[in-house]
Design a protein around this nucleic acid. Structure first.
Lengths: 228, 228
DNA sequence: GCGGTTTCTGATTTCATAGTCAGAAATGAC
DNA sequence: GTCATTTCTGACTATGAAATCAGAAACCGC
């Protein structure tokens, strides 16, 4: 007794509830709320459909429970950001973007949900904003604003800038099925991931700089080679 | 008789069918296929729900009919691109991006559909690829590849590059509801649109250039002032 | 304005899925 | 091992949306 202060062994109920939440997050984020059926989730979690209603009151509550798993993801991101407190705003923004990309690859459901519900609007988006996205977006916008104020970034509207960076960063990840269909390419291979990260940090963020920092040899190898 | 070689006056049936297609495109692209009901479309088009089945066999066929309206949009884009045939690949790419942004603002449904179905995969994405997106994406990737071969663009994987540019360009437009919820901002005002276009062309595309073309005064005013 | 055709509606059926419930099976403390 | 409790299932109901259809209304060439 000492390693984890939380529950020692989760107990059968909590274990299946977790499986259900994970399956639900995957399906909800990929297909959206209505297109995902309780039956689909049950099959994916390996239980019967009524079992879902034993653990979760209804579909809407299961959706929220699934989303709440992402709180840990965002909290982890936030914690990793703290290491760069004290650095200049641009360096912090660079770190934030790098972390965003890592998190997005590791938990693609987050970006998909933002895209899905962010397009539709409605009460689910309001809920996401209140419980998940609000502080994070605010933090990033504040960073961008500080970098602009410091003369390190071109003076674009910081909200647009942040949303666009997120959309660009998550684009290739979210649209994996499209890339497969259109080009026969799987963007989740290590090679493709490295190229993607290089492109985002080098080119996209680089283009936003107020002065072309070091125009000489900042060329990172975009393909091949393993990531650090 | 001479102005239009097509039908002179559409006739009542075709007129309501068009209203239905337009309403369907708006709803399908915003909410997705399952979340959109035939009843919703009927109300939006000002007809009864069975009327939809008079003009369109079933929901799936109405979806396809709605999507086919976007063919004209893409054809128009393609036609406008022809003006820059003969220019260097980078100039063509710049034109393509500018046109993409214009089209995306004018017909936001296109970007939303790509995002929605491109995330989910499945037969609707296959259909979109075959009937709408395939040639366009191929054309853009070929352009990027040419620009890279000419040494004008940094050598990132052209497919990733194109998808990312599209995701970045459509991001702010698609995520209008998110921007409203998170920041209370409407990105579709003329000012915001101008800033967005400047950001995409100046910063994002600029960052991709192989050599920092003209690092001096290529600073376009990001906000205020009317677009040319 | 008439008659045939096109276009549309109200009423109804069909079907998929969310949600309920009584009771069976698994679990784990003793 | 026993037994109370937790966990889950099969069978069922309720609901909402897609699709159908008979007939009404609008349309249009004459």
């Amino acid at each position: 007794m000492a390693t984890q202060p939380t529950t020692l062994t989760p107990g059968k109920g909590e274990r299946t509830a977790t499986r259900v939440r994970e399956a639900a997050l995957e399906l909800f984020s990929r297909l959206g709320f209505e297109r995902t059926t309780m039956g689909d989730i049950a099959v994916a979690a390996g239980v019967s459909q009524p079992a879902l209603h034993y653990h979760f009151q209804d579909k809407a509550q299961l959706w929220r429970a699934a989303m709440l798993q992402l709180r840990a993801v965002i909290a982890e991101e936030e914690q990793l950001m703290e290491a760069s407190t004290g650095a200049g705003p641009l360096d912090q923004l660079r770190t934030a973007l790098r972390l965003f990309l890592q998190i997005s690859w590791k938990h693609p459901a987050l970006g998909r949900i933002v895209a899905l519900e962010g397009m539709a609007g409605g009460e689910r988006l309001d809920w996401l904003h209140a419980h998940l996205l609000g502080p994070r977006n605010q933090r990033l916008v504040d960073l961008a604003r500080a970098a602009i104020a410091a003369g390190e970034l071109k003076p674009f509207p910081p909200e647009q800038l942040i949303i666009t960076l997120q959309a660009a960063g998550a684009g290739v990840i979210n649209l994996s099925p499209l890339m497969k269909t259109s080009f026969g390419i799987d963007p989740s291979t290590p090679t493709a991931r490295a190229a993607h990260e290089a492109m985002m940090l080098d080119a996209f963020l680089g283009g936003l700089l107020a002065q072309p920092q070091s125009p000489a040899r900042r060329q990172t190898a975009p393909a091949s080679g393993e990531a650090p």
